[in-house]
Nucleic acid binder design. Sequence first.
RNA 1: AGGCUGGUAGCUCAGGGGUAGAGCACUACCUUGACACGGUAGGGGUCAGCGGUUCAAAUCCGCUCCAGCCUACCA
Length: 923
Amino acid sequence: MEIPKAYEPKDVEGRWYPFWENSGFFRPEANTNTKAKVFSMVIPPPNVTGYLHMGHALNHTLQDVLARWRRMAGDRVLWLPGTDHAGIATQMVVERQLAKDGINRRDMGREKFVERVWEWKEHSGGTIQKQMRIVGDSVDWSRERFTMDDGLSNAVKEVFVRLYDEGLIYRGEYMINWSPGLQTAISDLEVEMKQVKGKLYHIAYPIGRELSAPVAGLAEAYAAANEGEQKNGLLNTEAGAFIVVATTRPETMLGDTAIAMNPEDATTAGRYSAINGQTAVLPLVGRALPFIQDEVVEKDFGTGFVKVTPAHDPNDFAMGKRHNLEFLPVIGKDARITDLAPEKYRGLDRYEARKQVVADLEALGLLLRVDDYTHNVGHCQRSGTVVEPLLSTQWFMRMKELAEPAIAAVREGKTKFVPESTTKIYFNWLENIQDWCISRQLWWGHRIPAWYTPDGDIVVARDEQEARERLKAKGIDPTVTLTEDEDVLDTWFSSQLWPFSTLGWPAQTEDLQRYYPTDVLVTAFDIIFFWVARMMMMGLKFMGEVPFRTVYINALVLDPEGQKMSKSKGNVIDPLEVFDKYGTDAARFALTAASTAGLTLSLQESKLETARNFANKIWNATRFVLLNCDDVLEEQEPLSWETHLSPPELADLWILSRLNRIALDVHNALGEYRFHEAADTLYHFFWNDFCDWYIELSKPFVTAKEPTDRDRAVKRRIIYVLERSLRLLHPLMPYLTEELWQKLPHKGETISTADFVAHNSAQLDGRAEREMSLVIEVISKLRNLRSTFNIAPSVQLAAQIAPADITARDVLTSMAEHIKRLARINDLQLVDAIAAQPGLARTVLPQAEIAVPLAGLIDFDKERARLQQTLEKLNKEFDGIQKRLANPDFAARAAADVVQQTRERATELQDQIAKLKAMIEAL
RNA sequence: AGGCUGGUAGCUCAGGGGUAGAGCACUACCUUGACACGGUAGGGGUCAGCGGUUCAAAUCCGCUCCAGCCUACCA
């Protein structure tokens, strides 16, 4: 058989996915076993017009590993794919496109614009889907969903109406985060707090009177009143009394409607009792400001006086509500000063206004101090502009009531987070949850199903017809002109329904009954709030059951330097380039092997190289078999372990035992989401056990020119183990394993639905494993001696081995030919004891003593040093063990088996030490 | 400001009460008919520091110091 010398992923990867997909192997219906357990997952839907980034590559790989593993283990697997309409992101892209042609979406009109976005989606979408096929995602494409599909849109309306009817969705005027860049409200989660170097302005407000002229000397008075530790915001000067406030946003003073202080400062004994009953007058505006008392004011911060701008600060908004203050929006949605401010400032951008206000205050002598001040400022995650807290009428979702069951479900273990530490992130957010602003001033998304009558009545309904029916029921004329709400819903509103809306809800479909709840959700920790928690709430609310049993949080992929990847840093790694360079299977293997319990993973070339080399190793091990086993390969029947040709020997029993042991280990590791362990186990089994030892031991048989029955038996067994190894590797490395498996005797059309090797405990053989490790140790020791004395591999040596007991003797006798070949010994003698003679290089193992005559080749100093080094090592361990055994408490309190083991080890060490000493003396 | 996670070989990380592990890098030897993306042998660690629990601590518990992340309305 012709087969290339090195694995070339490009020659292999292209052909398998179409075969899998066209054959329908990834549909749950492919499993015809009516008793099969169901295993289901929904994919975290990527942006429909997006492309795969490294996080996706990891996320998809892990899901695919699980899906393929469960499928091979016999489950009826549904892994449902789909995409998200990504309201803001998608709309922005299309708007930017239009802007190139000088078109504004408002000129175009809503209908035309939305049409245009759909067009663009049809045209540019699909990248993700193509990339998923490259990665090898074994999803059921026949069930692919999109959040703007009719079905999912219906689910959105249904949920909205039901929640509204229950009072869990409401409309009202509240403080929201306004993105001047996007011209829409955004939720708290879409605001990114960034440290900004700003200024803290100290401003004097006169008490009880309006200023008629600039005042002089206030700054000095203020400085004098605040020397050292003392803090005083109340200034009594020749020019009259002033209070001083500190602010980072002086322009908002135009909307001040009160001054707040801590209640303690206002008591008779308090430092500011003097201002009780008075009012301050707002400079530049002239408005009288009452003094209010509120606990949120910190006495120790600034001067203890806080200017209150209820329409432009969340804190002040709350105070405004508590104290019935006036709400004066002086900054508009365009981030410019409104007509509610003095004429001079109207129309100025908020930052221009800041400059102007500061200048004017300075001119009046009221700007007392400006400090450098670093503080956190909310930025719009998408547009980057500074968020403006605004008073605005929006739709909100009441969250507390929904959050409680979601908290309880996790507390009760109905859903489990892996790693467990991420549970805290979930609890922490839900326990402090705020109402969610769900309306967006966008056009691309699910339109809010609400209508308004000319009289201002609101009616929420699934469609206009139902709206009219509802009006009628309320006794309102159903024939009035209805105006539909202009806004759309936050994209996450539809995403939160994903686990059941994709299965057909609100219809009670078969899929819904069969696949909900899903088994596991694999996702990244940055969307635990955005998405996971919300799906939990909605699943419990509308399905009465958690949406997934397990949430596996995959790591954040860092660059090789351990830095977060970001466009601004320019350290983003394109997964497709990586997959292309190293091969898909290698990249998948590297990602899986790097998925340890931690929350981050740094992607280094060395890991990818290791994985690529591993793929090549698998390729070549199979190549070896294919090149040498023609006679067995002709049998197109799957091979059984049993053969009458020749009974299994030690190495056979050993590799079979190892195979079963690691099958169990891999199975358990995947069952507990220990991906790294699964990858590691497979790697070492295949490379070390199978290639380094089993293949090497088998070579004389496999390559025999005129094969005997025994040779044929060995070939059958090697193929048997190889074929099963490929199956175990398949979930991690689908393309390579399919390619090779197809060339070996096998059953079925594809490895992707072949049985994952279930371990057979009858084939575990502790004795064979112990005996093989003796053989391995003996060969390694002999090689070690050779290497120590720089003896070329081509030189054949003689060796004497004195086994410690009859078992060891039997093992070594039966394996003598193997030992001779692999250690390059031409004369091997098994003796009762090594006879002292000059020129012997010697070494000792727990179960055997070894000697190689090297007359003339030994450097005695070197040999003595070598033995001495070993002796010291053993002595050190022996001392430690002795000390432990000498402690009466040890025997009394330690576990019996530990004591037993320690005693045995002590005896063993004592024996080896004695032998080593004898060897040194004999030199 | 609170919280979380981590500090183990040169690098990236496993492990986790009872002989310190892997991959890469490093050293020496090997063009042995599966593979130089390879083989063989080897060097390298007071498991951040201090204290405690324990017969026994890298592992459990405190504290300290570093690093990273998340949350937060101090104007």
